Simulated scan of single mutants.
Amino acid sequence: MIATMPPRESLLRAVRNLSAAPMILARLGRMVADVDTPIEDITSMVKCDAALTTRLLRIANSVVYSSGDPCGTLEEAVLRVGFTEIYRLTGFAATTQIVENRLGFYGVTAAQFRENALLTALIVEQLAAPAGVDASTAYTVGLLRSIGKIALDRWGRTPGIDRDYESSGSGPLADWETANVGMNNCEAAEIIMSDWLFPASTVEAIRHHYQPTEASRLASLLNFASGAAERCGHGWPGERFYWNATPEQLEACGVSAADLDGATRVALEAFGPVRAAVA
Rank of each mutant, 00 (worst) to 15 (best):
R145K: 15
V141L: 11
S136L: 05
W243I: 07
W196D: 01
G160A: 09
S146A: 14
A174L: 06
N223R: 08
F198L: 02
G254D: 12
P159D: 04
A258K: 11
A189V: 15
A135L: 09
S220W: 02
E230Y: 08
D153H: 07
V274M: 01
T246H: 04
A205L: 03
A267P: 09
H208A: 04
A252G: 08
C186H: 12
R217K: 00
D195M: 05
G156T: 01
L268D: 02
A151E: 00
A205N: 06
T137I: 06
R163G: 10
H209R: 11
A138T: 12
D195V: 14
N244A: 15
E204G: 00
E251P: 05
T140G: 12
S256A: 08
A270P: 06
D175R: 09
G160W: 01
D164M: 13
A215C: 00
T246R: 09
E190H: 15
V266K: 15
T140H: 07
L143R: 08
N244W: 05
T137R: 10
T137Q: 12
Y139D: 08
R157E: 06
S256K: 04
V274C: 02
Y242S: 07
W196P: 01
D164P: 05
A276G: 05
A228N: 02
A245V: 11
V181Y: 04
E248L: 14
F198Y: 03
N184Y: 13
S220Y: 05
F224K: 03
Y210S: 04
G142V: 03
E204R: 03
T178H: 04
V255R: 10
A138K: 07
G272S: 12
L221Y: 00
S201E: 05
R217V: 00
R265W: 05
L152M: 03
D259W: 15
G227C: 04
Q211W: 13
T202I: 13
A258M: 14
D153G: 03
A229Y: 08
A215T: 02
C232V: 10
E187K: 14
R207M: 02
N223C: 12
I192W: 05
P237Q: 11
F271R: 01
G160K: 10
M183D: 08
R217N: 00
W243M: 09
G272A: 15
I150W: 04
P199Q: 11
L222E: 08
S201Y: 00
R217Y: 02
R240C: 08
A200D: 07
G171E: 07
N185I: 13
M193H: 06
I206L: 04
E204I: 02
V278P: 06
P273I: 02
E230S: 11
R145I: 12
V141D: 09
G182P: 09
A225H: 05
T140P: 07
N184D: 14
Y165C: 02
T202K: 06
T140S: 13
R145S: 15
A257N: 14
G169Y: 08
A270L: 13
